[in-house]
């Protein structure tokens, strides 16, 4: 097996530069690559294009890069949880491309799967359709959406092995497997890194072929955005 391990988070993000395009896995704050984001927020890099379903909250997740004005453009589907984001967007400091969530997922998948573009019904007749090719299939209108790729994809999994094979937990899977496929360099951080052979090949979600670097992350905060409980009867 090819050993994908790097020694530390500094090696994991080696090669990141201003002006690059990054993908970040996660839905809300669930399944985000906390260690990579923390490291990137310390770097003197800016003018970044970031592709992520959400934009974190003010003081966590991608909110950290927004605070330091490292992001030039954000490609997301829902950004409602971040006041600083809304401020930068409405003031025009931040360029934002909002796209339907399913389209975002599929564009990442397509980018990793060698499909340059595809037709989807989502967004037909809306602002999203603007300047896109429309075609009718089976009596229904569809719009042409193009694949997305990134210079770096930062993903987070529950378990991984030294060959870069990944297993996710719960709904923290979300965009991670798709973005893992679409990065020129995919950096995976995991809660538990095990030697090759320790993961059941039947259970692996992301094959190591899509991962260039793997590291065991430190001190996961795993913040919950919206704790909701029910009362015991």
């Amino acid at each position: 097996m090819i050993d994908k391990r790097v020694n530390n988070i500094i090696e994991a993000v080696a090669g990141v530069k201003s002006g690059m395009t990054f993908m970040f896995g996660g839905f809300g704050l669930s399944g985000i690559p906390e260690n990579a984001i923390a490291e990137l927020s310390k770097r003197e890099i800016n003018n970044l294009t970031c592709i992520s379903n959400n934009a974190g909250v003010d003081d966590f997740g991608l909110g950290l890069l927004l605070q330091r004005k490292q992001i030039k453009k954000m490609i997301s589907s829902y950004v409602g949880e971040n006041a600083e984001f809304e401020r930068q967007m409405l003031s025009g400091e931040l360029e934002v491309e909002l796209i339907p969530q399913g389209t975002l997922a599929e564009r990442c998948r397509a980018g990793g799967a060698g499909i340059p573009a595809f037709f989807t019904p989502a967004g037909y007749g809306t602002e999203v359709q603007k300047e896109k090719e429309v075609r009718e299939f089976n009596g229904k209108k569809h719009i042409l959406e193009k694949a997305l790729t990134a210079d770096f994809s930062f993903v987070k999994a529950w378990k991984g092995d030294t060959a870069g094979n990944l297993i996710y937990k719960g709904t923290a899977r979300n965009f991670n497997p798709l973005m893992a496929m679409a990065g020129k360099i995919t950096v995976a951080e995991v809660e538990e890194l095990v030697p090759e052979g320790q993961l059941d090949p039947n259970q692996i979600h992301t094959p190591g072929i899509f991962v260039q670097r793997i590291i065991q992350g430190n001190a996961y905060e795993k913040r919950i955005e919206n704790i909701t409980i029910r009362k015991k009867e």
Partner: peptide, 20 residues
């Protein structure tokens, strides 16, 4: 349904980011 207090899992949320 939503979890009982103390049983919230950050890896298990719904579209509204609520624990489930």
């Amino acid at each position: 349904p939503f979890p009982f207090k103390g049983e919230e899992d950050p890896d298990l949320i719904n579209a509204g980011k609520q624990t489930i």
